[in-house]
Design a protein around this nucleic acid. Structure first.
Lengths: 330, 330
DNA sequence: AATAATTGCGTAAACGTTTACTCAAAATAT
DNA sequence: ATATTTTGAGTAAACGTTTACGCAATTATT
């Protein structure tokens, strides 16, 4: 009992082709009939059957988005940016949350791909090989946002290497010489490698040889921050620490507090990300803020005008937020 | 150049009907041919065209989910629960983030509806009339999760009325008589009404006449918490306060801190929601924790077996987390 | 007024899958 | 050995939309 263009065509005494042309605003038709058809559509409560449309036109305006279900508090901001631009340009977003569980991940991706997609955007996702193979075999445009991947996949992210220079320089200017980096010790995600290298090179540019012990922690979790403080013990061997994600930095802050370390008097903290979370602590976190919304917008607009070559790397700007967790030392 | 079942049928020397039966595991076929077909499908890199399938079978296994884009930190948990159950039962989730902007909201909902959906689930969403009309005219099953709506729409949520009793009783048992409620003052969302009434009735059951001034704040934001403390000024006219969302409670906590009020010594706080956010503060927040994951699971399983009558109200359990923001007073 | 260009709309095929009917062959029952 | 049931698979229509093509009617050009 659903209303189709056939019903509209019948009532209007014209062909389905005309109705289709009018409703999609393509091809030729008179404004008179158009008026009538649009009214009828409204009156009858017509809803386009997008499946039929997708089937008919081989191309689609649907962009699939893979979001890690592990709580990343910035995914929302990226999605917001994408949604905004997608709406503006007439695209549709099909968002799928994926577990870390590989089995379910492949299922989800397969079902995503069974809609014909314009592209698949991966948010802050370190993709598993199995999943990557599926995506590749489906021959769909891929784009990684807020993360850089090795596999020739175009990406939109912050310049993680340069960002660490900004942070280290800032701390150096405030007198800090012993600086730790928490949450980017692992070899795997490219972002970690870039940040680590940026950190090391920035220190070197100030004639400081980095201390390998000062790079610690793999997971981007609250617990990593908490444990980092415990691990180094009192007195802390450094005067400043960089948390590689807001949630880590909050862990560092609370860990310090629990250990009787005063921030920023006894320990300075700079966080990477700069989401709203940084406003919830006391003192408010000093942050290198990533422009997540912008990333989302760029993702859609670049996909829209098809301007991504397989190796494109697009950087968005970083804003340094002074906050209250860095102090100047002698 | 996409692979269809026609290609597979041709290579296997059988009809598309057989291929379809095998791939969907419906109807009759021999295990021999099935084997061959499945291998071919793999080999050729076949992906089902879900649009064609949807068009052919009028029913679908897609459930639309409307999520408010304003950062609610518990939406993730509900989605996680839904995703989990949906995967288990073979359903697909189509998630759409909606802005508060009504114009875009209707667009988004319309495009959601143009896929044939089994149902639309609204997360913590106070739906606009215009949008509700569209949904109603589309004649699709509706379900509200974590929120109760007036319009005959089935819902899955906590028992917000009873929850306030639990909280008030707890505070009363710890000696508190002057208790404020922040963030549920407005008339609009049913949840606010229920919480307010629960709060008033719970106080009454202890022979306390509630003070209308103690119910304050509409928006579920950090700023509401911050401003609440400012509004009441020092000394605070109450010894305990209930924050109607974690983010409000963190505002209350920081607002108190900024005003030199010690929590819990000078002010006790109980928060509603109990997401991970409560772990990030010092002290850790005392919370009436809602079971969001369960809500999500119930949403899907109830839709799956079609057991929702238009007035069903399903409650999930509440867990009281003692935390560290309530103290006993004389 | 004759010719050319444009406009509005209909016809019919196509998109890829599913499924109600058939029907012959194979298996089982009598 | 015949009758009955079961099995495997093919035929063809259907789902709702889009679009290439064609043609008559209208409008513009000379």
């Amino acid at each position: 009992m659903t209303i189709t263009i056939k019903d509209i065509a019948h009532k209007a005494g014209i062909s389905t082709a005309s109705v289709s042309r009018i409703l999609t605003n393509r091809g030729r038709f008179s404004e008179d009939t158009a008026q009538r058809v649009r009214e009828l559509a409204n009156e009858l409560g017509y809803f386009k059957n997008q499946s039929a449309a997708d089937l008919s036109q081989k191309a689609s305006r649907v962009i699939g988005v893979l979001v890690p279900i592990t709580h990343t508090n910035f995914a929302d901001e990226i999605i917001k940016g994408m949604q905004h631009k997608a709406y503006e340009l007439g695209y549709e977003l099909l968002i799928a949350f994926v577990e870390t569980n590989s089995q379910q991940q492949t299922e989800t991706v397969k079902s995503l791909l069974s809609r014909q997609l314009l592209a698949v955007v991966m948010l802050a996702l370190d993709i598993e090989d199995a999943v990557f193979d599926i995506l590749k075999s489906a021959n769909v445009t891929l784009l990684s946002v807020s993360n850089q991947l090795n596999n020739d996949i175009p990406s939109i992210s912050s310049d993680n290497y340069a960002m660490m220079h900004t942070i280290v320089d800032y701390l150096y200017d405030h007198g800090h010489r012993q600086i730790a980096l928490i949450g980017s010790s692992d070899a795997d995600p490219i972002v970690a490698i870039l940040r680590r290298q940026g950190y090391i090179d920035a220190l070197a540019s100030h004639d400081i040889t980095y201390n390998p012990d000062f790079i610690w922690g793999v997971e981007m979790t609250y617990q990593t921050g908490i444990e980092a403080i415990k691990k180094f013990g009192l007195p802390l061997p450094f005067t400043a620490v960089i948390g590689s994600a807001d949630i880590i930095s909050i862990g560092l802050l609370n860990g310090a507090r629990d250990a009787g370390i005063s921030v920023p008097n006894d320990l300075s903290i700079v966080t990477v990300d700069g989401t709203e979370l940084t406003q919830l602590t006391r003192p408010v976190l000093t942050a290198a803020q990533q422009n997540f919304t912008k990333m989302g917008e760029l993702a859609i607009s670049n996909l829209a005008n098809n301007s991504l070559s397989s190796h494109s790397v697009i950087f968005t700007d970083i804003t340094f937020i002074p906050g209250g967790t860095v102090t100047t030392i002698a």
